[in-house]
Amino acid sequence: MISRFRQRAERRVLVVAEPGVSEELHGLLARAPQIGGALAATVDGFVLAEALGPARPAQTGRPAQTGRPAQAAQTAQRPDAEPLAALTAAALGLAFRMNEATGRGAFRELLIHGELGYVATYAAGPSAVLTLLADDRANVGRLHLEGRRTAGRIGEALAASRHSPPPPPTSPPAPAGGWGEAGGARTPPEDEPRRPPLERRRRNPPSPM
């Protein structure tokens, strides 16, 4: 399990921070102090930006961290983001299936209420999601308002960056409208088995269990 997350973390060297997304997350936390953490991720589990509270001291048991580009090390000092993005992708898969099976249309949000707080996930455009963490005293009405608003803006920012020309000439141009392919630079290595794009996944009829 850990090694899988590490693999993901290594792969994330390829992930380029989306302009404006991180600013949106920090703006959200400043505006709504009851929101304890925010994470923007693609629907297939890649971290786009995160603001999961105060930075933790760098973990000693992760030698893979050394020698990484500064860009990746910036988010790597908070290891919670990676598993959370992966879990969000897994939870979304189930949520999409539930939505599909019950005919509720396109996915909008997912709210998990635990004894000690809430985990809320909002669709941010077609290829990304915003996950927010709040404690049990949180005002859910406000969580929804802020979450929907910020997710909408993140979706717009991603759509805008998708239309801008892809920066690296080495990677092939991303197909328009593809899931999680908001830029050529974020495409995972070719040998990685990719999950099918979400739109396609959604159209597949749920197979009998």
């Binding site: 005002n139 859910v140 009405g141 406000r142 969580l143 929804h144 308002l145």
Partner: peptide, 20 residues
């Protein structure tokens, strides 16, 4: 912070925002 019911309001007065 969620509304159990709303009447009135409208485009210029979002009662969900007011409730929160």
């Amino acid at each position: 912070g969620m509304a159990l019911g709303t009447v009135g309001g409208g485009k210029n007065f979002d009662l969900e925002v007011a409730a929160a």
